[in-house]
């Protein structure tokens, strides 16, 4: 598994149609940030990204773990596709209200430095289920490519 800047890990897993990733983290905030960074690593190679710009996203309240991950991935993909911001590092803060905030330190897309390895268009809920075990939490992500 590939290690990410926040300590989470990921690898690609077989899927019958599109592309799927398995991501692991210590706890849910770590996993959510790990999913965002796994997306960056899968699409661009995280080692090519420099954290120069901060983007903050309120992940809201009342969502379950899968809903939070979907929201975080949707936000990250929006930043990439619409604003050319590539998450190089990320963390999730738990606010006093109990809601989650995703803080991403991003690189600005520069065709001279960045080469897209794989095109990801959207996250899916398809078969997504967060699994907990004594080592932490993990989730399988199926991506629309």
């Amino acid at each position: 598994m590939r290690r990410l800047p926040n300590g989470a890990r990921w690898r690609e897993v077989p899927h019958g149609a599109d592309r799927a990733l398995w991501v692991r983290g210590r706890d849910l905030p770590d996993l959510v940030a790990g999913c965002v960074l796994a997306l960056s690593d899968f699409g661009w190679g995280i080692e090519s990204l420099r954290p120069v710009e901060v983007a903050t996203v309120d992940l809201g309240e009342g969502r379950d773990a899968e809903g939070v991950i979907f929201r975080a991935l949707a936000e990250a993909l929006f930043l990439v596709d619409a604003r050319g911001l590539l998450p190089a590092d990320a963390r999730v803060e738990v606010l006093a209200s109990g809601s989650l905030r995703l803080v991403m330190r991003c690189d600005r897309l520069d065709p001279a430095r960045h080469r897209r390895r794989r095109a990801v268009k959207a996250p899916t809920f398809h078969g997504m289920r967060v699994r907990r075990d004594r080592f932490g939490v993990g989730v399988r992500l199926v991506l629309d490519v």
Partner: peptide
């Protein structure tokens, strides 16, 4: 293109 993808993503969350 991206507009359609965003519409789908937005409404998946709302309908979820």
């Amino acid at each position: 293109r991206g507009l359609g993808h965003q519409v789908c993503t937005d409404f998946l969350e709302r309908m979820d």
